[in-house]
């Protein structure tokens, strides 16, 4: 994992998505005061899309020839891809933390956020980031040969995931379908709560947990496809 991290940093492939992340955060909090949960909701969605970008660049950091060599040393594709997922999650963790801490430090909110706001802010960023990693990984070169399809695939699934949130009422008419679709809508619903929230309802914890479980299922699907697809 240490090698993957250093290699990724040296390729500088992170610069475009990271620059956009910084730009969005700075511009979003240019004017003060801002509502707390609404702002976090917006930056969570922004990070959701950017994590798709980060995921692709992390998974495609090494050249094909080097990838074969690293896999050989890793004693298997699963160990190799696990390390890539860990790098992505580490990026998601750092950017989620920055997204929550930065506006607090510059006093961008109308009132100082409570621990409750910070926790919900972090969970909304981090859960959507992990979801984006899980959805995007399916379209990386490990499973998709054509790189153009990678970008279209990632962009499509992330957009669809957000669009689903606006079509929830229609989707609910088909029983059980909502459970199959990416649960971005759960974060948007939770973050639309009023800033005067005094405690985090238990159902919120379950909803965040479901987003992580849903992401894990997609990551499990990634490894399932990987094992059943022999490119060599």
């Amino acid at each position: 994992m240490c090698y993957q991290c250093i290699n990724y940093l040296r390729t500088k492939n992170y610069i475009p998505p990271f620059s956009i992340f910084i730009l969005f955060i700075v511009v979003n909090y240019t004017f003060v005061p801002n509502p707390i949960l609404d702002s976090y909701s917006f930056t969570s969605i922004m990070l959701f899309f950017l994590m798709g970008w980060f995921t692709i660049t992390v998974f495609h950091t090494e050249e094909e020839g080097q990838k074969v060599i690293t896999i050989l040393h890793s004693k298997g594709q699963s160990a190799y891809n696990r390390s890539l997922f860990i790098v992505c999650v580490a990026i998601a963790f750092c950017l989620s933390t920055v997204s929550v801490i930065y506006p607090t430090l510059i006093g961008a909110f109308s009132e100082p956020p409570s621990v409750l706001h910070l926790l919900m802010g972090f969970l909304s960023h981090f859960s959507l980031s992990v979801l984006a990693i899980a959805l995007s990984a399916i379209f990386t070169r490990e499973l998709i040969r054509d790189r153009q399809n990678t970008w279209w695939g990632v962009l499509s699934i992330l957009i669809i995931a957000v669009v689903i949130a606006t079509l929830k009422n229609v989707i609910l008419q088909v029983k059980g379908l909502i459970w199959l679709l990416p649960p971005v809508h759960l974060v948007l619903e939770m973050m639309s709560s009023d800033d005067s929230l005094k405690y985090i309802p238990t159902v919120f914890y379950w909803q965040f947990a479901w987003i992580f479980i849903y992401s894990m299922l997609w990551i499990g699907l990634f490894f399932f496809f990987l094992r059943h697809k022999r490119k060599w």
Binding site: C2, Y3, R10, E63, G65, I69, L72, H73
Partner: peptide, 27 residues
């Protein structure tokens, strides 16, 4: 030991670093 046909052109490490990382990954 296996040396693949395609030699990577963009290895951003020194031989010392690169071999160290590959060996560490090997355990």
């Amino acid at each position: 030991g296996y040396v693949p046909e395609v030699t990577p052109s963009q290895i951003l490490f020194t031989p010392q670093e690169y071999l160290y990382h590959m060996g560490t990954i090997s355990g």
